[in-house]
Design a protein around this nucleic acid. Structure first.
Ligand code: FES
Ligand code: FES
Lengths: 144, 144
DNA sequence: TAAATAGTGGACAATTTTATCCAATATAAA
DNA sequence: TTTATATTGGATAAAATTGTCCACTATTTA
């Protein structure tokens, strides 16, 4: 479904959001441990999220990653997926043709379109904040 | 969504099904041209489909790939996806945790489960035959 | 200002996926 | 029985993704 990088990105964002709710900045190491991911690789992903204004990062001692109120309010899962995996979820063809195309559809176009549109809607309406709140309550897990 | 191999596998199956409806066996080359895929790679995929009794293959002159009436009647998209990509579509976690797990769900479990269940249902109810019939009528395309 | 800390960026390595090549096998027809 | 044809299987190769290492920059604090 998503690339490994994107999975890490989503999990990291939820963790950072949750800690930000508690007014805590977190270090790369914190994130990697919280979501059980390779630190150096995670670093690249956080950089990308940072450049896309999904999280912010501060250097130096007392530095780390965090999300401000604005980000917490507006970041949806779709923002993260788009930043990391690009627009393939939106215009990719389920059978790998160059692009999804209504006029010259692949054999499963109609079936795929329905499911993809729901996925899209889900990603666009689910906020990282809401997921972070649930996570904070212990309802969900970022590693096992 | 699916691996490239799986995409080729589905497209190949639809083409083979359609040609079988016209009582034609097709060669590897025919398939690769019809779906615009690398022949040697496609060969591996057809072998896997053949070993899983999704298509049959005959060696020697007049040989080639085909689907019999039984296969045409019972092969669903899910058979192909399962044969090539395995069960990850069924039990994989959307955020990459070891396995999807109701008891210790990842933060997007509920949202994902809904979509994945629909995808699953779609794959399990869509026959290759129905897609082949539409393709035969010129309603859909296997390459562009 | 010096030292310690934390993210950044670039090069590089490992792994997985995708793709190619070729000899071997099976089969049909001449 | 020979020849031609078509799939099979194994060994490689190329490309993409995932993962690592390390020197550098920015920043805080002593
Ligand atoms: S053309 Fe294949 S999904 Fe739309
Ligand atoms: S636990 Fe992640 S999708 Fe079910």
């Amino acid at each position: 479904m998503f690339s490994k990088a994107c999975e890490y990105g989503i999990r990291a964002s939820i963790f950072i959001a949750e800690q930000s709710l508690l007014d805590r900045k977190v270090s790369l190491k914190d994130v990697a441990e919280a979501i059980d991911s390779p630190a150096a690789y995670t670093s690249k992903i956080l950089q990308k999220l940072s450049r896309n204004n999904i999280i912010n990062s501060d250097k130096g001692p007392t530095g780390g990653f965090s999300m401000g109120k604005k980000e917490l309010e507006k970041v949806k899962l779709s923002s993260i997926v788009f930043a990391i995996d690009g627009e393939s979820i939106y215009n990719g063809c389920g059978l790998g043709l160059k692009k999804c195309n209504e006029k010259m559809p692949c054999p499963v176009h109609n079936q795929f379109k329905m499911i993809r549109d729901e996925l899209k809607k889900m990603l666009e309406t689910t906020t990282v904040l809401s997921l972070a709140v649930d996570y904070e309550k212990g309802f969900s897990f970022l590693k096992r």
